[in-house]
Nucleic acid binder design. Structure first.
Lengths: 227, 227
DNA sequence: TACTAAAGTGTTAATAATACACTAACAATA
DNA sequence: TATTGTTAGTGTATTATTAACACTTTAGTA
């Protein structure tokens, strides 16, 4: 390994630059949405991109991704994991740039639009109806979508998309939206409750013009594998 | 994104350096082995490390990893995938270095030791009995081991560890070595054959002092998900 | 108080996973 | 050439999991 100036922590290295790009999913209006920014100038003008930023010398990739979420989208304390590192030579026409993609889930109740109305060019976009994308960000989104579809089947990550308390029907809807298929109500409830990850609260969701639904919550809001 | 000299493809960027480290597994003497290099000088002298190298401006990460395999270990045309990107600030005391880890499988029949006897300091090491490791390479190995254990259960990647033709017992042995548990012979054969990924060759493995075993081969030696 | 709409609930059938033991075929040797 | 040792090769019964399917309950509203 060749490193110039090896005694100095802030060494200058000649090599690809490193960025993080964050893929933030949420459920809104019964659709799976992703947070995108419209680019205002430069070679990718009028195309859309994932929120991202250059990785600084004194931050890890996880920290860099958290900083992007906080600065660009005002989001913190959410589910996040590293997705994949993209490195095509031509992925950014402006220069050689490696991007470490991160994958995040938010529940749109806690994270309301007002936080970001501030930016005119940042929006939740239906992941099934993407606009013209900059860089290889369409590829990143598809990669993340595959991760989401598979991981929701063998873990409890769905908590990242749900509010603190929720009904089983709301939870089932999230599964159906992500997987793109209807699920049998009785089988779904049986299976989910058998996992033992939820506790029944003593509250119900009232106000709708039908029987009120029991509200549940996750015992622990942290990643658990279920298979 | 701040990029200096944006019209020049070979821009100079101030940021973390990027390396690839390759985690190469094989089965030898009934054990899961990993290819390690003993470091001869510097702050990590006498510790062991994964084969790795700095990522050049004109190569993708996949290419960089392939080049490492070829140059450092004389290996090519094997199963390889990106594993994870490691970025702790202190992972290399010599300076800020991000490492994209790759995960590779070879079958030790095709890849014989002679190819690399050339290097005195490169060896297959039992993954359950690792020596003192440099950097965060122990962590990378454990991460890769988890990937291997899970992926062997939902895909056909085991082909990467097997020769062109093999007996079902040999295949079962690989599963048992990786998972660290005995598997029922009849159930294993039933399940594997039901997947329909193998074809029976007309040959048998003779020479052993017992009944000869049928030789099988994979219909396709490329990644297929089985669940 | 009748109507609407989603909540809530069990059983049966089909499929998949597990547990388990003997015969077949060759090599080595007496 | 008969005997022994060693691994290859095979089927069935049990259990666990998944899939299919329809009616009653409860609040809101007219």
């Amino acid at each position: 390994m060749k490193i110039q100036n090896s005694k100095n922590k802030n060494s200058i290295i000649i090599g690809p630059a490193v960025a993080v790009d964050t893929l933030i999913f949420t459920i809104r209006d019964g659709k799976l949405m992703v947070l995108l920014i419209e680019i205002g100038s430069g070679p990718y003008k009028d195309k859309w991109a994932l929120p991202g930023g250059i990785v600084q010398l004194n931050e890890t990739l996880d920290e860099a991704a958290k900083n992007v979420l906080k600065k660009k989208a005002g989001i913190k304390d959410i589910y996040m994991e590293q997705l994949y590192t993209f490195s095509d030579l031509k992925r950014d026409v402006r220069g050689r740039m490696i991007s470490v993609a991160y994958f995040a889930l938010v529940n749109s109740d806690e994270f309301n639009l007002k936080t970001m109305d501030y930016y005119s060019d940042i929006e939740w976009i239906n992941v099934r109806k993407l606009p013209k994308m900059a860089f290889d960000h369409k590829e990143i989104i598809n990669y993340g979508l595959d991760r989401l579809k598979s991981k929701i089947e063998y873990s409890n990550i769905v908590y990242g998309l749900l509010p603190e308390t929720f009904t089983l029907t709301e939870m089932q809807n999230v599964y159906e939206i992500i997987l793109g298929e209807k699920i049998d109500k009785r089988n779904f409830r049986k299976k989910i409750l058998a996992l033992g990850l939820l506790t029944e609260t003593k509250k119900v969701k009232t106000g709708a013009k039908h029987r009120p639904a029991k509200l549940y919550k996750f015992k622990k809001r942290e990643l658990v594998f279920t298979k």
